[in-house]
C-alpha cells in the first residue's frame, strides 16, 4: 500500500510533496487553478499547464468546525472523531491565490500575511487501500 494523489489532473505527488497544476495564459500572463482551457481575464484560449509555486502568504482564513457531508467529503465525518481544520487562501507571488486546507486549526496561530508552504495530508483511502493525499499549507517553520 502506498500513497497516491487525490486527483492527478490537479496535483502531482512528488518526492518533495504535492505540486499543483494550474493554467497559465500565454496571451495575458494570468493564472487559474486548476487547469482549464480558457482564460477568464482576457478570454484567450492560448493557455498552457504550469506547476504552481509551493510557498506564499496567507490572504484569508477560517476554521471548518463541523464535519462536511460525505459524499463528497473523504475525511472523517464521525462528529465524535472529527477534528476541525483550517481553510484559507494562500497568495502565491506572481501567480494567484489558491484555496487550501491549512495544517493549523487554532485561530490564535493564524494571521493574514504569514508565510506558508505546501505539504501533503492523508485525507482517505482509495479502493486498493492506498492513502489518498491531498494538499494543505503549513506555516513555514
Amino acid at each position: 500500500m502506498g500513497q497516491v494523489s487525490i486527483n492527478e489532473n490537479v496535483m502531482d505527488l512528488t518526492e518533495d510533496g504535492p505540486r499543483l497544476k494550474g493554467m497559465h495564459c500565454k496571451n495575458c500572463g494570468n493564472h487559474v487553478f486548476p487547469m482549464q482551457k480558457g482564460c477568464p481575464k482576457c478570454t484567450s484560449d492560448d493557455v498552457e499547464e504550469v506547476q504552481l509555486g509551493t510557498r506564499g502568504t496567507l490572504w484569508a482564513w477560517t476554521i471548518q468546525g463541523f464535519p462536511p457531508k460525505a459524499p463528497p467529503y473523504l475525511g472523517e465525518t464521525d462528529p465524535n472523531k472529527f477534528k476541525p481544520y483550517g481553510v484559507g487562501y494562500i497568495e502565491i507571488p506572481g501567480q494567484l491565490k489558491v484555496e487550501s486546507r491549512l495544517t493549523v486549526a487554532d485561530p490564535t496561530a493564524l494571521k493574514n500575511g504569514m508565510e506558508m508552504e505546501i505539504v501533503g495530508e492523508v485525507i482517505g483511502q482509495d479502493e486498493d487501500g492506498n492513502d489518498l493525499i491531498t494538499f494543505a499549507f503549513a506555516p513555514v517553520a
Binding site: 477560517t62 471548518q64 473523504l74 491531498t134
Partner: peptide, 17 residues
C-alpha cells in the same frame, strides 16, 4: 472529486473567510 473530497466545497467557509 478532489475539491469536495478535501473538504473545501462548503459555502459556509467562504462566508467565514
Amino acid at each position: 472529486d478532489w475539491y469536495g473530497g478535501s473538504g473545501m466545497a462548503l459555502t459556509t467557509q467562504f462566508f467565514g473567510m
